[in-house]
Deep mutational scan, measured.
Amino acid sequence: MAAAAAAGAGPEMVRGQVFDVGPRYTNLSYIGEGAYGMVCSAYDNVNKVRVAIKKISPFEHQTYCQRTLREIKILLRFRHENIIGINDIIRAPTIEQMKDVYIVQDLMETDLYKLLKTQHLSNDHICYFLYQILRGLKYIHSANVLHRDLKPSNLLLNTTCDLKICDFGLARVADPDHDHTGFLTEYVATRWYRAPEIMLNSKGYTKSIDIWSVGCILAEMLSNRPIFPGKHYLDQLNHILGILGSPSQEDLNCIINLKARNYLLSLPHKNKVPWNRLFPNADSKALDLLDKMLTFNPHKRIEVEQALAHPYLEQYYDPSDEPIAEAPFKFDMELDDLPKEKLKELIFEETARFQPGYRS
């Protein structure tokens, strides 16, 4: 834990890192770190609560700039109880001085990944967590956004079992017609939660990839272990087919990539493993919904509104309290091709509203 900075004593240090967030945020305490930044909790002297502050230093890398800009653009436009918001952003007053960006968010005690390492969940908890994931996802999908990296560590939890989806750095506007060349190379989302079509096709992607990830998360809540822990690309596919069985001819016809289709045709026939054999203690309604989410063919996979209306979630289902976005989200430009200098300018502009004396 960093010592509390005395008023006016300059930035606090946390594990050798400068955290320049005073005077409003003090009493910093280390939480963890990701690929390009550290997260601390801090005391907000204005709202009198502890908050989470993520320090991001992305400006050396085009990919990190892209992810940072995506996350900020999306989260500043989203407003939903099951999606983490941005409360404040701290950065230098000029673009030349801006080396880091500090993002202030609600402090959540833990995440689903940490929880599943230590606790076996009751059916009631599984049901409530799944409902909140789908409630947040309904809003995301209504904005025409794909999260693309749903996994237990991106689901934040607090002691009252509130759940918030975080990390929109890989999110995209849904565009089933656009052929994202190089899709697989830039697709760094965790393999275990990846839909089979991501490994088999490169053309376009749809909201059904997020539903697949939610199915993987439900299976993990039922058993405290990942359902498809593939060691590499082909191993991942083999794990999936080992449980779902061989795809039907109709399902194979959806695979545009001939090499991928021929690979699947070359494999020995596998039978589907019954879900109640894998999860003998699970609620039968939970397994019915799991089956509809972990469907090989993305066109037959359940959609988020149908999933919310499934009998497993009937005690929570309330369409009048499951809000959607006001308007579909649009990125003005494809960020993939922009140089990091341009992305830095866009991050600077996007964060201006939090600067003292800002006038829109």
Rank of each mutant, 00 (worst) to 15 (best):
A3G: 00
A4T: 13
A5Q: 11
A6S: 12
G10N: 10
G10I: 11
P11C: 14
E12T: 08
M13R: 13
R15P: 15
G16L: 06
Q17Y: 02
V18Q: 06
V18W: 01
F19N: 14
D20H: 13
V21M: 12
V21D: 02
G22E: 13
G22Q: 08
P23F: 00
Y25A: 02
T26P: 13
N27F: 04
S29H: 01
S29E: 03
I31M: 15
I31E: 15
G34M: 03
G34I: 02
Y36D: 15
V39R: 03
C40E: 15
C40R: 13
S41H: 07
Y43I: 06
K48S: 10
V49M: 15
V51G: 14
V51T: 09
K54D: 02
K54I: 08
K55I: 15
F59M: 13
E60Y: 12
R67Q: 11
R67E: 11
I72A: 09
L75S: 10
R77M: 05
R79C: 13
H80S: 04
E81R: 04
I83K: 02
I83Y: 00
G85A: 12
D88R: 01
I89C: 12
I90S: 00
R91M: 02
R91P: 08
R91V: 11
P93W: 02
E96S: 04
E96M: 01
Q97E: 10
M98F: 12
M98P: 06
V101D: 02
Y102W: 07
L107D: 12
M108L: 13
E109Y: 03
Y113G: 09
K114C: 11
L115Y: 00
Q119K: 10
H120I: 07
L121G: 02
H125Y: 08
I126P: 04
C127M: 12
F129R: 10
Y131A: 02
I133H: 04
L134Y: 10
R135L: 12
L137C: 05
L137E: 07
I140K: 08
S142I: 05
S142H: 03
V145W: 06
L146E: 10
L146M: 12
H147F: 01
R148I: 09
L150K: 05
K151P: 02
L155A: 04
D162C: 00
D162M: 00
D167C: 03
R172G: 07
R172E: 07
V173Q: 11
A174R: 03
A174D: 04
A174V: 14
H178T: 09
H180Q: 14
T181Q: 06
F183A: 01
Y187A: 00
A189K: 01
T190S: 15
R194Y: 05
I198W: 10
L200W: 11
L200R: 11
N201T: 09
S202M: 08
K203L: 11
K203A: 10
T206H: 13
D210T: 06
V214W: 04
A219D: 04
E220D: 13
E220Y: 05
F228Y: 15
P229K: 00
H232Y: 09
Y233S: 11
L234M: 14
D235G: 00
D235W: 05
L237N: 03
G242C: 15
L244V: 09
S246W: 01
S248Q: 02
Q249T: 10
Q249K: 15
I255P: 08
I255F: 14
I256A: 09
K259C: 03
A260Q: 05
A260S: 14
S266R: 15
S266A: 00
P268E: 08
P268M: 01
H269F: 01
K272N: 14
P274G: 07
N276G: 11
N276L: 05
L278M: 12
F279H: 03
F279V: 11
K285E: 12
L289W: 02
D291T: 04
K292P: 07
K292Q: 08
L294V: 06
F296I: 14
F296W: 02
R301T: 05
I302L: 14
E305N: 06
Q306G: 02
Q306P: 07
P311R: 01
P311V: 03
Y312R: 08
Y317K: 04
D318S: 02
E322L: 01
E322K: 11
I324C: 01
A325L: 08
E326L: 06
A327P: 06
F329I: 15
F329D: 05
D332E: 13
E334H: 00
E334N: 10
L338A: 07
P339I: 08
K340D: 05
K342G: 08
L343A: 12
L343R: 03
K344I: 05
E350I: 00
P356Q: 09
